[in-house]
Design a protein around this nucleic acid. Structure first.
Length: 496
RNA sequence: GCCCCCAUCGUCUAGAGGCCUAGGACACACCCCUUUCACGGGUGCGACGCGGGUUCGAAUCCCGCUGGGGGUACCA
């Protein structure tokens, strides 16, 4: 038997339990990209029998909102993504919201100050803006000039007297190459001179900055892998420096490619509005199974190449090595294909339940639950999303149908009148509730009158549906039932 | 500007030097099935960005170019 031995970096970590996390910031509704990153973390944890934690990065005092937190947690659960630890259920390394750890971050920051790795900086916002503008005008990369390292005691006293609240900055030494082996991208190197000078780790408000808090949390929570979007690559370089200063080995990093729009730009709220939010698809009648499946396969292909899979199957197959390095374009047509696949293959009762919100404008009491299920069954095959169902089934609930001139033309024909009258007189011989039988009865009438094809079916369909196309005619008759069929045909024949 | 990442059909991708006259899926077109619309089946359209290497042989490895994207805050 042949065997392949692969030496992997970070192997020693694999001997301990895998721990990953998703750390959304509640500054907006659940985003497609956030959902996919969460999904990949979740799948990775399940694949390796590891732990998946959810943590809230709510240190942005201005933009954070509880409504967003609720939307994010709810949306992830809806997609089938469950966490083992989180702000709602707790866990072994609490708290799971950064705002509840502000003292802790500050304590760590002070330790860095004591060891000379960080310092107070009193530069004002105006001062820094001016610095940046000058650099920009000179066509230089904007960066902090580390001026705060050289304050004299007198200057500091002066700043304090003016009431200036300092930030804490972490010292970033120039010309160091920061390198790591990314589990998706491979080797990545960034020069420390290119990350903008000494970085703020605690704002003047006393709240830790993301790049600092995230490192402390990942250390506190014993994360072994950090799987996140590739827009974080430069942050990773900064964070590695902090891990070093704290004397902790950094986790394995994996940067997932972004999701683009058709113009190959990052999907963003600003440009795409509601279309980036999971909640929009949820409202429009997209199946969580479809969104999960679509999101999972857009940058990852299972080893066996299958494209349709459940979240459980993905849990058994997911693999960072098979995640693509290049961005994927969000293609609504492909999502619709996945969605229609699940709409027609999930149990009818499930689909019917999920259709209910989209049928709320109709008088549902007109039908029994089994009949509603038949209505759903009659149109589900062609539905790209559930919200389209209402216009396709409205005729089932309408008192009378609207006719176009083309349809009235059809009804004027003698054969049409003959067909409709015959249906009317034979009403009692229809096996209501049996779609195949109803269809057979229509065919028998056709034979009797020597009418077939469109001449036979169109008048009936028009009278019942007010359309020349729609669900199977046998189903329509069967579901509508004797009373409604009678009334509708009467209404059509009346004026003649 | 500077830094980093990326590069196969319109889109998602398969592809680990010969299995590639590059495979699958979505979309599109046509055909079949079908009273209609779908579903299903079939056919077609359609890609290795460019230039240099390395090699007997390159979509695959190396370099350069070009293109695209991301980052560059007291946001996350």
């Amino acid at each position: 038997m042949r065997q392949r031995f692969v030496v992997r970096r970070g192997y020693s970590r694999l001997t301990s339990k895998i721990r990953v996390r998703m750390a959304p910031s509640p500054t907006g509704y659940l985003h497609l990209g956030t959902a996919r990153t969460a999904l990949y973390n979740f799948l990775y944890a399940r694949r390796h029998q590891g732990d998946f934690a959810l943590r809230l990065e709510d240190t942005d005092e201005v933009r954070s909102d509880e409504a967003y937190t609720a939307d994010i947690l709810d949306g992830l659960k809806w997609l089938g993504i469950n966490w083992d630890e989180g702000p709602d259920i707790g866990g072994p390394y609490p708290p799971y919201r950064q705002t509840e750890k502000t003292d802790h971050y500050e304590q760590v920051a002070r330790k860095l100050i004591t060891s000379g790795k960080a310092y107070f900086c009193y530069a004002s916002a105006e001062e820094l803006d001016a610095l940046r503008e000058g650099q920009k005008a000179a066509n230089q990369a904007p960066r902090y000039d580390n001026r705060g390292r050289h304050y004299t005691q007198a200057q500091i006293e002066q700043f304090e007297k003016e009431g200036r609240a300092p930030v804490i900055r972490f010292k970033v030494e120039d010309d160091r190459v920061i390198t790591w082996h990314d589990a998706i991208k491979g080797e990545i190197s960034i020069n420390s001179s290119d990350i903008g000078g000494d970085m703020v780790i605690v704002k003047s408000s006393g709240i830790a900055i993301y790049n600092f808090a995230v490192v402390i949390d990942d250390i506190d929570m014993k994360m072994t892998h950090v799987i996140r979007g590739e827009d974080h690559i430069h942050n990773t370089a900064k964070q590695i420096l902090i891990y070093e200063a704290l004397g902790v080995q950094h986790p394995v990093f994996a940067h997932v490619p972004l999701i683009f729009d058709m113009d190959r730009q990052k999907l963003s709220k600003r440009k795409h509005g509601e279309a980036v939010h999971i909640s929009k698809y949820r409202r429009d009648g997209y199946m969580p199974e479809a969104i999960m499946n679509y999101l999972a396969q857009m940058s990852w292909t299972p080893a066996d190449g299958r494209e349709i899979f459940t979240i459980e199957e993905a849990c058994a197959m997911f693999d960072l090595e098979r995640v693509s390095k290049s961005p994927a374009v969000f293609d609504i047509k492909r999502l619709e294909w996945f969605n229609s696949h699940y709409i027609r293959s999930l149990p009818l009762s499930t689909i019917t339940d999920r259709c209910m919100p989209h049928l709320a404008t109709f008088d549902l009491k007109a039908y029994t639950r089994p009949q509603i299920e038949e209505i759903v069954a009659s149109v589900r095959d062609g539905l790209p999303a559930l919200h389209e169902i209402s216009k396709q089934v409205s005729f089932f609930f309408a008192d009378k149908v609207d006719l176009t001139s083309e349809m009235t033309e059809v009804l004027k024909k003698d054969s049409s009148k003959a067909v409709l009258s015959q249906v009317q007189t034979k009403l009692t011989s229809f096996p209501w509730g049996d779609s195949k039988g109803c269809k057979a009865t229509v065919d028998a009438i056709g034979k009797e009158l020597s009418v077939k094809g469109k001449d036979l079916y169109w008048p009936i369909r028009i009278a019942l549906c007010g359309a020349t196309s729609g669900p199977d005619l046998g189903s329509v008759l069967s579901i509508l039932g004797e009373q409604r069929v009678k009334a509708r045909i009467e209404a059509i024949l009346q004026p003649c």
